[in-house]
Write a protein that binds this DNA or RNA. Structure first.
Lengths: 208, 208
DNA sequence: TAGATTGTTAATCGATTAACAATC
DNA sequence: TAGATTGTTAATCGATTAACAATC
């Protein structure tokens, strides 16, 4: 299992951005790109792109740059998204609905495979062709389906409880939409999406 | 206008996280915290928190730490969220609906003030007490309302066009949910929310 | 007072950039 | 060949951490 040693996490975080831009270029019919072109597009230096990629191998050719399809496949493989990960969604309010119906997962390595909520008024409802299940059965369903990735879209005061349940069921990656920092066991990763935090980051630079 | 010089952007990005945690502690009835306690909670070193805050002033007291209410107010002021910014939402699909109905903006410095879409089937519909307006009137409405912050929730192939329109109307901060990198004029800021990119970041560490 | 914790300095650590030989 | 661009090294830059005097 050729595990690569100690790549900086900040580099890993940029790979999805590269992947996204490569997909875009491929869709535009291009066949090759260069670190310069890619960097220009993303507002990143070409040196950084070459350095980042060099952690994983040699993907380009002097003089001509990178074959888009090849580099795309390589990064997909590195990120383990040359497969489809089943994903659970917990919390089927407006946001959960939006995520369940979002068409952008399939092509990028994920497939929503189960939906959970604890509101009896919506349990049993069908969303995106799936039935909303009660939290009680979450542990069993997640284990049955081998789910290791989940998105949490419940109110802030329930997010830690849900995260505990998910970790216990074997989930190793949590995308948390609740605006709180979660405590999770070692081996479980959390990424946060808090639109307000992003907005606040920008208003700092705005004159009142 | 006591503008502070050249604070690293990475520090600014952490302030909303601090703010979120402080709000949480205040709600829990606490009155004081320390850099150690806050750091523990957030998985950040206490030294970093003290260093970050020291860019803006002296907010603590030796021996006792930080008064929560005071520090909270100070950071709100620094981030310019001790006021309510009107925000436009462009793209009223599932995600736009979820954002329009989200109750988490008001307490954190924002107020959704107008909704836009270009789909005649939903233009005129009412969401969260607001009417969905056509993109044609976006420029005028945004100027009338003095909107300088917008959230873009349109399909990827329309996001750049929308961003251009927004910039032209005077919007200075764009939160972009479309999975593409936007090109915007100098003086306009963009933050990105791409759930798939976050998921891919985590699957790197997952065994296949 | 004794204990705790700040704000700050200096040291360390890590990430980014510039430069260039190699080579397509 | 001449031009372009890679992968890599070394230099630079910036961020984090450790340590501690000051002081509540």
């Amino acid at each position: 299992m050729g595990k690569l040693p100690n790549i900086p996490d900040i580099v890993i975080g940029r790979l999805p951005i590269y992947l996204r831009a490569l997909a875009h270029m491929i869709q535009g019919g291009k066949e090759y790109t260069s670190s310069h072109e890619l960097g220009e597009r993303l507002g990143i230096s070409s040196a950084q792109i070459r350095k980042d990629l060099s952690h994983f191998g040699e993907f380009g050719k002097q003089g001509t740059g990178y074959n888009l399809a090849y580099l795309y496949e390589q990064i997909r493989h590195i990120l383990h998204v040359d497969q489809q990960w089943p994903v659970a969604i917990v919390g089927m309010g407006d946001l959960g609905h939006a995520l369940a119906n979002y068409r952008g997962f399939e092509t990028r390595g994920f497939r929503v495979s189960c939906l959970f909520d604890n509101d009896v008024k919506i349990i049993g409802d069908s969303v995106a062709g799936m039935e909303i299940l009660p939290i009680d059965v979450m542990h069993d369903v997640i284990q049955q389906q081998g789910v290791r990735v989940a998105m949490v879209a419940v109110p802030a005061d329930q997010a830690q409880f849900v995260a505990n349940q998910l970790a216990q069921a074997g989930v190793k990656a949590i995308l948390n939409y609740a605006p709180i920092t979660l405590a999770v066991p070692v081996g479980v990763r959390v990424q946060y999406i808090d639109p307000v935090a992003h907005l606040q980051h920008m208003t700092y630079y705005l004159e009142t």
